[in-house]
Design a protein around this nucleic acid. Sequence first.
DNA 1: TCCAGGGGCGCG
DNA 2: AAAGCGCGCCCCTGGA
Length: 579
Amino acid sequence: MYEILCAGEPGRGLEAAAHERESAGETARWVWDDTCRWYPGLLDDGVRVERAHDLRLAHGILRHSPLTAGTPFAQMSDAGWDALEPALTGQHSTGRRGNDQGTLNGQRSAGAQGAADGAASANAAAASLFDTASLFEVDSLFDAEPTTAAMSGLASLDVEAEWAAQQAAITASTDPGRLRFLCAAESAAALAAAEMHHAGLPWRSDIHDALLTDRLGPRPPVGQRPERMEALAQQIRAALDAPRLNPDSHQELLKAMQYAGTGAHSLRQWEIRDIKHPVIAPLLEYKKLSRLLTANGWNWCDTWVRGGRFRPDYVVGGVVTGRWSATGGGALQLPKQVRSAVVADPGWVLVCADVAQLEPRVLAAMSGDQAMAAAGRGVDMYAGIVDAGVVASRDQAKYGMLGAMYGGTQGVSGQVRPAFARAFPRAIALVDGAAAAGEGGEVVRTWLGRGSPRPHPDQMASNTAVRAWGRFTRNFVVQGTGAEWANMWLAGIRRRLWDMGETDDGPSGLAPHPFTRRPHLVFMVHDEVVIHSPAGMAEAVADGVRAAASEAGRLLFGPASGVEFPLTIATVPTYAQAK
DNA sequence: TCCAGGGGCGCG
DNA sequence: AAAGCGCGCCCCTGGA
C-alpha cells in the first residue's frame, strides 16, 4: 500500500515509484491501461519494467476470443475500452509522454494465479514469466487528447474495474490457461516494443547517404529528380516517343506503352520484364530507383533517423492475426538494399536471429502431426520433406507448404496437394478445417485463443468472396499462432538479455539508458530479431536467443510436441551481412 | 484543398 | 515462378 502519486510531478511520480520497485528487485506486474502511454516515459527516466498487464491489448483479445464467447465480458457493450487505440509516440517524439494528468494509485492486489494450465505447459520458467504474484495498479484519467472523436465522452476509464472484469472473463472462459498466456505474452511484447523504440535501430546516415548517392546521384534540390532518374526518364520518353511523359503517372505511362505497341496490360515489373522493347530496360531501372528514393531516400532518413537511431512505432497486435505492425518509416519492410546502413556501435555487434520456417513448424505442433514434426527435425524443413520422400524437390516442398497454409490451388502447390495430404494428414486437416469454418461463416482461433474477425456480409456475397474468406481463416490460425510463438520468444529474449547484466570490460554504447551497457533488442520482424550487443557478450546473447526459442516452443506446445524451432543466427557488424 | 481508392512494391 | 496469406507506404487520380 502506498500513497497516491502524480505521474507528472518531478521526483515523486510514477517514474520514482517504478524505479523504487524495480530496482529493489520486486517482481511487480504493472497493470496499466496502455503500455504505449506509460512505458516510454519510464524508459526516458532509465526505468525498465519487468512485467506488465496491458489492459487495452488484453481487452481486445478477451472481447473477441471464442474462449470467452459465453462470458458477460464478451457480451456487454463497452464503448470505452473498445475504442481505445494505441497511444503512439509520434514520429519525432523523444521526450516523455504527456501524461501529466495521470495518477498512480498504488494498491496491492491479491492475486496469485499460477502459470497457464490447459494445454500450455506450466513450468518454473512459466511461473517466473507469467504469474502475477504481486500487482501494482496504475490508474489514470483519460488523456485530454483522445485519438478518436468517439472517445471524447470518456472522461475516465476505470482501470481497476477493467482489471477485475478481465480476470473474471479469463476465469469464466473455457480455457483460462491459454488466455492467461496470451495476455501475458501480448503484454510482454508491448514492453519489448516500447524498449525497441526507445533504444532504436543503430543507423548510419552517412553510409545511407553514400549508398543513395551511389545509386541515384547527389541529393537533388527539393522538387527535382535525382540525376540518374532524370536521365532514365529522358530515355523512357525517347523510347516511347512521348516527350512530355511523366513516368510517375501510371495512366500516362500505360497509355504511352500501349500506343508504342509494347502489348503491356499492366506495369508490374514481372509482367513487362520479358517484353522486347527499348523502353523496358530504362523503365525497370527507373522504377527500382524511384522505389528506393521514395521509400528509403533522403527524406525518409531526415524524417525517421535521429541521433544515429531509426525509431519506428511498433504496433503490437496491429495485424488482425496478432502479428505486429508498424507505423511510420515502413519499419517492417526495410529493404535489403539499405540494410548496410544498420551498423553496430564501435565495440558492439548485431546478433541477428531468425526462425527457420516458423509457420510450418507451428502448424506441425498445433496439429500434433508427428510426420511433419519429424520432417522439421533439421534446420531446413523443406529439405526434410524431400528426404521423407513426400515430394521430389525442395521447391515443391516449399510451394506445397505455402499452398497448404495460404490456400493455393494453382501450379506446383496444387500439384503436390494430394501428396501433402497423404504425408501430413493431421496438419492438412487442421488448415482445411479452418478454411471450411471460415467459408461457413464461423470464427476460428489461434492456439492461445485469439479469435478471427467475423466476416461482413459483403465478404460472403459471392463464391469467390467466400473462398477468399476461407483462405483468410485458413491462414489466420497459422499466422496468428506464429505471432504468439514470436511474442513468447521475445518475452524470453528480453528477460534473458536483462539477466545477463551489464558489460564490465566492453565500451558503453550510444543507446540510451537503461541499455547503455547492456545487450538489447533493437528490431523485430515477425520471425526475426536483431539484438545490439557488446561484442564480448555476443555468444551469450546467441545462447540466450536459442534458449528462448526452445522455451517458447515448450511453453506453447508442451515438452512432448516433438517440434523444434531451429534458428539461424549471425553475429555481424552490419545487418546487411545477416543473410 | 482534402481524402479515398487503385496500382505497385517492399517485407515476413 | 509472381498462385495462395498478412501488412505500410508511395504516387497519381478523380470526386467532394
